[in-house]
Nucleic acid binder design. Structure first.
Lengths: 160, 160
DNA sequence: CGCCTTTTTGCAATAAGTTGCAATTACAAT
DNA sequence: ATTGTAATTGCAACTTATTGCAAAAAGGCG
């Protein structure tokens, strides 16, 4: 069945209410800001959007609401290494990111690639990993082909 | 060959100097604080140790030195979810951590478990992952056996 | 040894995120 | 509709980390 426009906003709200959390206007607006955002959104951006319609809202409410939504599995949080964290509606599908430390490029990574790791953690450690939105840092294809270091320039490495 | 006590401190310093970085007393003391610490140490703890002998040092120097050491691969940084990040000498061996979100317990994880993932990132994406000190969040064995949620208590999940 | 250049530091301001507490408010029960 | 109460918010203070800039200092060179 097709999801109607409004369900996107109503469902996480209902979920919260069923769990005994109160539906405050602040929470509804923060939820709306996240679900309506097509990309990963930061706390500051959420705050900007919400306070445009509801100026007395406080940034700490945004952070506390994000913590709640994350705890309840409704949003995922990712640190892309920007000095600030970004959020994403969990029901829009899990995925991960490869972040190139040389050029800053960000690539999407299929969720399936982490499954073997999750399975071995479960099998070998009986640990139920909660890896919903991971950023893996490293060097991308293009940067690996180009020359490498920043300062020393000449490659000292003995094993080519 | 056995590593003499002093080599532990001299080697990273030499490494820095060979790369053209200056050996300042601040850097040497920060390095010493990290290598002498048997456990993962925070920036604030490094600062406390260093400023005990050298009071005019500034916390921003600690952070900048940590950024440099990390960049040069001499220390690894890990966010164990404490609201502050911890550092560890890279030459003491890489390892990872499982952090239980229910009870807070932290388990060590063998580096080998991440190798298949690193290999598939290299094979499928030509991406050279730099996973040297990862914290994976989730639920540990003990917490999985006990009852689960906090607020809603009854498990609504339809697929057991 | 002292000069010179470039790196590095200290300082102060700033950013991102968290927390304690009193005031407010959602919502269930009258 | 009103009330009672626990959850939630706003506020202000605080913590962790980062940054611009002028002053200080490392290390190469003469």
């Amino acid at each position: 069945m097709a999801v109607k426009k409004h369900d996107v906003e109503r469902n996480p709200a209902q979920f919260l209410q069923e769990r005994g959390f109160r539906l405050t206007p602040q929470r509804l607006m923060i939820l709306a800001a996240i679900t309506e955002s097509q990309k990963h959104i930061s706390a500051e951006e959420i705050y900007a959007r919400v306070s445009a319609q509801y100026p007395q809202v406080n940034i700490s409410t945004v952070y506390r609401t994000l913590a709640l939504l994350k705890e309840q599995g409704l949003v995922t949080e990712t640190d892309l290494g920007e000095g600030r964290v970004r959020y994403h509606a969990a029901d829009k599908g899990h995925h991960h990111h490869l972040v190139c430390q040389s050029c800053g490029a960000i690539f999407d990574l299929d969720e399936a690639l982490l499954e073997p790791l999750e399975r071995s953690l479960l099998d070998e450690y009986n640990f139920e990993a909660d890896i919903r939105h991971l950023a893996i840092f490293g060097r991308c294809s293009r940067c690996r082909q180009r020359a490498a270091p920043a300062k020393g320039q000449e490659v000292i490495d003995a094993h080519p």
